[in-house]
Design a binder for these strands. Structure first.
Lengths: 243, 243
DNA sequence: ACCTGAACACCGTTCAAGT
DNA sequence: ACCTGAACACCGTTCAAGT
């Protein structure tokens, strides 16, 4: 029973969910306080009772997406992946990537955050756990996070990602032909690579390139892990070092 | 001689140079058409005679920065680096990085461009040239560009780069203590790594991490280059492949 | 407690008008 | 040809007022 209210009361959760849906549907530029309010059939100023301001809204939106990633990666990798750090980390990162492909605007928001949300800290703690279980020192694990960079969360910053791949193709092709011999190597590469990947959309198979890079990095980390000093859980002996 | 005019006539070059200077001085958010005009002692609408709109302004600003990178890398790497692709590429990328450290806002603008500027294409053509001279196939060189990602231009997208390192340190420390045992690996890592890097500002030595990652990637590329098929300049034999 | 309307300070940009 | 002032459509946000 209960009377069917057409507009349930606003809440932080409802605001954030609507914000994610709006960005998914119309893109990040469409995510303004005013349009978000419109979607929720409310005045813009009502939103300020649930989020402090737009930055806080974006912080919340990141939380929602990262929680989705955590949920997906817990299924994929399991909480503890035992000794096979490489397979465990690989699976976790690739499943994070699947989530982010559903929210293509999310990386751009992620990059602009200035404070770490607990969800993100928790995610990185899990990644560190996998590395530690695999025998990495904290020092090497720390470097590993830097090398992986945004790949840890399943994305890389694609320089000049075209809005529409087909159009960009035409653009680039026209530009290259026009510019003749000025860029011989680019022209050569495109002639060869475009031919080889005939059938896929655009010049690059993004999923293939992502995994190629990920595997190259994991190989490099494995090589350095082998030379790494054994796992030390006792912080005491650190004091022996001279500053 | 010549009368000293206080306000030289506007030009695209003067507009772009002022835009770079404004962003360097006051940050990217301060780079608005109105404030840029103010710096140039002109009305905002005058700018539209020299750049089509704000997107075109940002395109131009990227051009200026990339040209600065090209000038720096030509000195550092030389136009042709011969056989030692690894040292040549490494020097080029590190000198690109030096330029970008002077324009910390530039990566964020670079990322939002949707069209490739000739300056960027030219830069990548040079990088490809180094790889080709080092014996890379176009196919592997293409993968190499993807693996290097934004590192090619001297930067990586730092997730959650704090505005002021010291403040962020305090924030994180307080947060971790407050959250107690919830993130054991993060806490462990920070205890160990912070101790080891005592004396540097913040948790990470960014330059060290950049070079660590770069070298790991270059190692991986070298290993794959050795197994790569020899350089083929004849596109004819590609036709032998089945799609 | 939660929501609203009017208002403010700021954007990018158009347009007709000035020199 | 180059620059300008007023205006428009949009932001995020404050504030006093409503229920």
């Amino acid at each position: 029973m209960g009377t069917a209210q057409r507009r349930p009361p606003l809440s932080r959760e409802r605001v954030l969910a609507a914000a994610v849906a709006l960005a998914d549907r119309d893109g990040l530029d469409a995510l303004t306080m005013r349009r978000l309010a419109q979607d929720l059939e409310v005045e813009a100023m009502s939103l300020y009772h649930h989020v402090a301001n737009k930055e806080a809204l974006l912080d919340g939106v990141v939380e929602v997406v990262v929680e989705e990633i955590v949920a997906a990666t817990d299924v994929a990798g399991g909480p503890a992946t035992g000794d096979d750090w490489r397979a465990g980390l690989r699976a976790r990162i690739l499943s994070a990537r699947e989530v982010l492909l559903r929210h293509p605007w999310a990386p751009r928001v992620l990059e602009t955050r200035t404070t770490l949300s607990p969800a993100v800290i928790g995610y990185y703690d899990g990644v560190l756990g996998i590395l530690r279980a695999g025998g990495f020192s904290y020092d090497l694990a720390h470097h590993a996070l830097h090398v992986l960079g945004s790949r840890t969360l399943g994305f890389v910053q694609e320089l000049f990602e075209p809005d529409d791949p087909a159009g960009a193709d035409a653009d680039v092709t026209a530009m290259l032909e026009q510019l003749g011999g000025r860029f011989p190597h680019i022209v050569g590469m495109m002639a060869e690579v475009a031919h080889a990947t005939e059938g896929t959309l655009g010049w690059c198979d993004d999923q293939f390139e992502f995994e190629f890079a990920l595997d190259l990095i994991l190989d490099g980390l494995e090589a350095r892990r082998v030379g790494d000093r054994p796992r030390s859980d006792a912080p005491g002996n650190l004091d022996d070092r001279t500053t």
